[in-house]
Design a binder for these strands. Structure first.
Lengths: 231, 231
DNA sequence: ATGCCTTTTTGACATCCGTCAACGTCGTGC
DNA sequence: GCACGACGTTGACGGATGTCAAAAAGGCAT
């Protein structure tokens, strides 16, 4: 078992700030796990049995209606925390978008550990508050923006988020990046259909705002135009 | 100044569980404030200067685009916590929908107190996690439901939420209740226009699913039908 | 009660986006 | 290289919802 000492998100995840003894305890109750692209880690409405830290890879959080409509309600990147501590059921499924490595804990073990370590709970609180902020601004997008504003906002956000994870040598937003989403998944994030997403991408390409070297690759040619479109 | 001892939300808000000495400290840094219907308590993108507990009344959390489109991203009821601790700016405006009483703290004072009281931070964490769950299920509504599903879901949620606050003598969802929202505000919650909301209300009334005794009053005649419509 | 203003409802119309269907492209295994 | 299947693009079309306008209903002060 790989230990926390060599963990690449050690200083960014909620475990940052724990001392050696605490890390040892955490190490004892957690274990590494690989989730391959497309594989589920947590099921919506299931008993909330586990929580986890993302070490690398990208995962989606989704909710679905009975008739199969899906909405992606969150995306987890390295160092993000996933799962629902202190609750009986999780309100979203968690599925890997890329092959991913996570550090999983049984919810009970984690809850107990967290309650005994206020510093960790505080980090979790800060993270949850930030996630709530992001989620709320996404509600604005879902409720009030039209398709082209949605796509522009999405591309700008991806450019920021993927840069953070160190995909570009320098800081600042990534000019070129590889989407962890299929077209259908982009649609599920934005509350659109795959056809509308495709048409909007083509439109941006024709207008010279972006370049689309391959299905998953995006290069932003005119960030200003994108910002104007995002509204 | 009215003190915590007589506070009606004393045992439901995050201050529950604090001992007498702690309550005294909290009492010293907080103060009661009345917010009249329509009045703002917190402004979007402003420095996050204060946080508060809702004592009574209902408030909306909103985000807006530059061109004036508004989305209600949350609703705060008695015992709910509002504001953005541990952050420099708040991501939403908070405006009273009804006359309301709140217990406000300067963010700095609150942050300091919270960091010294893990039990309070834990309660805040639980509340924030629950709010995140609710927000995510609302994203499903905004992104994937049609107008009639939105309205049906909204009425069922209002019926549950308003019952909790003790508006009905017995437990369970309220059959009849008074909306704290104007038609425009309902539209801002659901990501619709006022006209669409009005037409959907009229449709439900004509189908005998609800009765609308006045602009703000709703009586649910056929909860089963509403649940079926909510999807 | 009357008048005035705000909110809501209703109608006519426009449009954005979803639906359905066909076609094109990419990746993979043989 | 070829065939296959998954994914993505494009086109034609329809309908749900937005827009604009006017009328109706309610609320409030005089």
């Amino acid at each position: 078992m790989t230990s926390c000492e060599t963990c690449v998100v050690r200083n960014r995840a909620i475990c940052a700030g724990l001392d050696d003894r605490e890390i040892a305890t955490l190490n004892a109750i957690g274990r590494r796990r690989v989730v391959t692209a497309g594989e589920s880690l947590i099921w919506e409405d299931d008993d909330s049995l586990l929580v986890a830290n993302v070490i690398d890879g990208v995962l989606k959080l989704t909710t679905s209606t009975e008739d199969g409509r899906e909405q992606i309600v969150g995306v987890a990147y390295p160092s993000d925390f996933i799962g629902r501590p202190f609750g009986q059921t999780s309100s979203a499924s968690v599925v890997a978008l890329t092959d991913a490595r996570v550090c999983v804990f049984s919810r009970n073990d984690f809850d107990r550990f967290a309650r005994e370590h206020p510093e960790l709970e505080h980090k979790l609180l800060e993270r949850t508050l930030a996630e709530l902020d992001r989620t709320r601004s996404w509600m604005m997008l879902l409720g009030r923006k039209n398709a082209s504003e949605k796509i522009a906002t999405f591309l700008l956000e991806m450019s920021d988020r993927l840069a953070e994870s160190g995909c570009t040598p320098a800081f600042g937003p990534a000019k070129r990046f590889s989407l962890p989403f299929s077209r259908q998944q982009v649609a599920d994030v934005l509350g659109l259909t795959i056809e509308t997403v495709s048409r909007q991408f083509t439109k941006l390409k024709n207008e010279g705002v972006v370049e689309l070297p391959s299905r998953r690759e995006v290069e932003i040619l005119d960030r200003g135009a994108l910002k104007a479109l995002a509204g």
